[in-house]
Simulated assay, not measured.
Amino acid sequence: MLTKNVTEELEAVLQALHDEGKTPSIALVKARLSTPVPMPALISTIKSWKSVKRVPKVEIAANAQPADKIAQLEQQIAALTERVSILEAQLSEKS
């Protein structure tokens, strides 16, 4: 399973909130993240930050198929469908 390390992003968000004088909360942190992080990971990260100003290593499951990969597969399916239609038409002409 592929994972993505979001520790640096979480640390940057928490530090920015601290610099603004705001107390980090799940809602504030979640709103500023560009990557969705599971709730249990957010809770433990915020608890750690509040107690020792340290962010533990947080890894989340990476998306196995990026959007460009899906688009590429859709194009292949369309091309193959067109080829099948042509072959079916040629077969029906011979019959």
Rank of each mutant, 00 (worst) to 15 (best):
E93K: 15
K69H: 09
S92E: 15
A62W: 08
S48D: 10
P38E: 09
S85D: 12
E11S: 10
S48W: 04
I43P: 00
E74C: 02
T35P: 03
P38C: 01
P66R: 11
V37D: 03
K94S: 12
V6R: 02
W49E: 01
E74S: 09
A67K: 10
I26V: 14
L80V: 02
S25P: 07
P38H: 04
P38D: 07
L10Q: 00
E88N: 13
Q65R: 12
V58Q: 02
K22Q: 14
E9V: 04
L17K: 05
A62V: 04
I70E: 06
A16H: 07
I60S: 03
V29F: 02
E88W: 00
E82W: 01
E82G: 01
E93H: 09
I77H: 06
R54W: 05
L91T: 00
M39K: 13
I77G: 00
V58S: 00
E9D: 13
A79W: 04
P40Q: 07
S95M: 10
P24E: 09
A64P: 08
E59N: 15
P24V: 06
H18C: 09
H18M: 09
P38W: 01
S95C: 03
L2V: 11
S51Q: 13
I86C: 00
R32G: 03
L91Q: 08
V13C: 06
R54D: 13
R83I: 00
N5R: 11
Q72R: 13
E82A: 13
T23H: 10
P40T: 06
I86G: 00
I46R: 02
K69E: 12
D19T: 04
K4S: 12
K94M: 15
V55F: 02
A61Y: 07
E82R: 07
L28D: 05
S51R: 15
P36K: 05
L80N: 10
N63L: 15
L28G: 08
S44Y: 10
S25G: 13
K94H: 11
T3F: 12
P56T: 05
N63M: 13
M39G: 03
L10T: 01
Q90L: 12
I70N: 02
Q65L: 15
S95V: 14
S25I: 08
K94I: 15
S25N: 10
S85F: 02
A79I: 06
P56G: 07
N63Q: 15
L33I: 04
I77E: 07
S34K: 13
I86P: 01
Q72Y: 12
A71F: 04
I60W: 04
D68I: 12
E59S: 14
E88F: 02
